[in-house]
């Protein structure tokens, strides 16, 4: 049956139980994440902020996953690219810019940490660090606590494919498997760990396949498709809430920009490869999907871009004017006071 003559056919998002408003909100959040990220690069190149670490290319994975969770009770242990996830859970463009400018009002750390090092008690997001993969064990610990306290939340932790080689990945999956804990391990495979491609990272070629060794489903999804990621995380969360234990999800996309503002990816990958990946960019693909199903028009799409542009402008202006932390803050909160 061709799509033209099947106007009555249920769309993909409807089949998943998602309303038009919800998928539009997903797209809006993906676009906001992208635009914030792009602005940060401009600010960095203009010498206004010291550092950027990007979500670009992974917005669909982050937003799709976060939409599948319960934003009132589930816990996150994200990694430093999860801007999209943070926006879904409640942080704002202003929060991101305050962090980029290292201002006192910045919610993750009051300017102590680099941008991208998320942590927000308001939304049950545990503070993360720069040594990779440590957060997996924290998510397992939260899930263990939830099980002990007979709560029905799940914890989701995300990480790159390079992290699937660290000991904490294997220790975390094994611990969660043995104790049948409500954790979702979501690998955001963006095909590069700084300069090292997956061929040199992953023996066996698959992160998802590693789940089997720890007694849990290992699911591969297209990380450029927010609906596919949504479905996988939704199902994993349902399993976890029913007491059926952890799930490993590998969402494969592509890191569209260098590792960070201090990296130059031209030294290790062909720019043609990046251009090819841009054709599959989730923002392009999902926008087309929304247009195809009649949720987004050229006009409403352009209006949305303008609206988000304003939000990013306002956030940038606000953050740039906001005060730095007082130097005396260097000495506070080492221990309980």
């Amino acid at each position: 049956m061709g799509s033209e003559e099947s106007v009555m056919e249920t769309s993909r998002h409807e089949a998943l139980g998602l309303s038009d408003d919800q998928v539009l909100e997903m797209y809006r959040t993906m676009l906001l994440a992208r635009k914030i990220d792009e602005r940060m690069w401009l600010l960095n190149r203009a010498g206004k902020i010291p550092f950027v670490i990007s979500c670009q290319g992974q917005e669909a994975t982050q937003v799709g996953a976060a939409f599948a969770l319960d934003r009132e009770k589930d816990w996150l242990c994200p990694y430093y690219r999860d801007l999209g996830m943070m926006l879904v859970f409640g942080q704002t463009a202003k929060d991101q810019m305050l962090s980029a400018f290292a201002r006192a009002e910045e919610p993750n750390s009051a300017g102590r940490q680099m941008p991208g090092h998320y942590g927000d008690k308001r939304f049950r997001v545990i503070s993360g660090s720069s040594p990779v993969t440590t957060q997996l064990l924290h998510a397992v610990g939260v899930a263990l606590a939830g099980k002990m306290e007979k709560k029905d939340f799940v914890s989701l932790t995300s990480f790159g494919e390079g992290s699937s080689n660290q000991g904490d990945f294997h220790e975390g999956l094994n611990f969660a498997g043995v104790h049948n804990l409500p954790v979702i391990f979501m690998c955001e495979n963006n095909k590069y760990a700084i300069s090292v491609p997956i061929e040199k990272q992953l023996a066996g070629g698959s992160v998802a396949a590693r789940g089997q060794g720890y007694g849990m489903p290992g699911i591969s999804v297209d990380g450029n498709d927010p609906l596919e990621v949504y479905e996988a995380v939704r199902d994993a969360a349902a399993r976890a809430r029913k007491g059926e234990g952890p799930t490993l999800i590998e969402a494969t996309a592509y890191r569209l920009v260098p590792h960070s503002s201090d990296d130059d990816d031209r030294t290790y990958r062909e720019m043609g490869e990046v251009e090819e990946a841009r054709k599959k960019d989730s923002l392009v693909q999902f926008k087309k999907y929304l247009e195809d199903v009649g949720i987004l028009s050229t006009e409403s799409g352009a209006e949305l871009e303008r609206e988000i542009g304003h939000i990013v402008d306002e956030a940038t202006e606000y953050a740039e004017q906001a005060p730095y932390p007082d130097p005396s803050e260097t000495y506070t909160h080492v221990y309980a006071e």
Binding site: G141, V142, A145, G146, S155, E171
Partner: peptide, 11 residues
């Protein structure tokens, strides 16, 4: 690491 996660939660 698991103890850290559980303690952050409040255990």
């Amino acid at each position: 690491g698991v103890a850290i996660g559980a303690s952050v939660y409040g255990m």
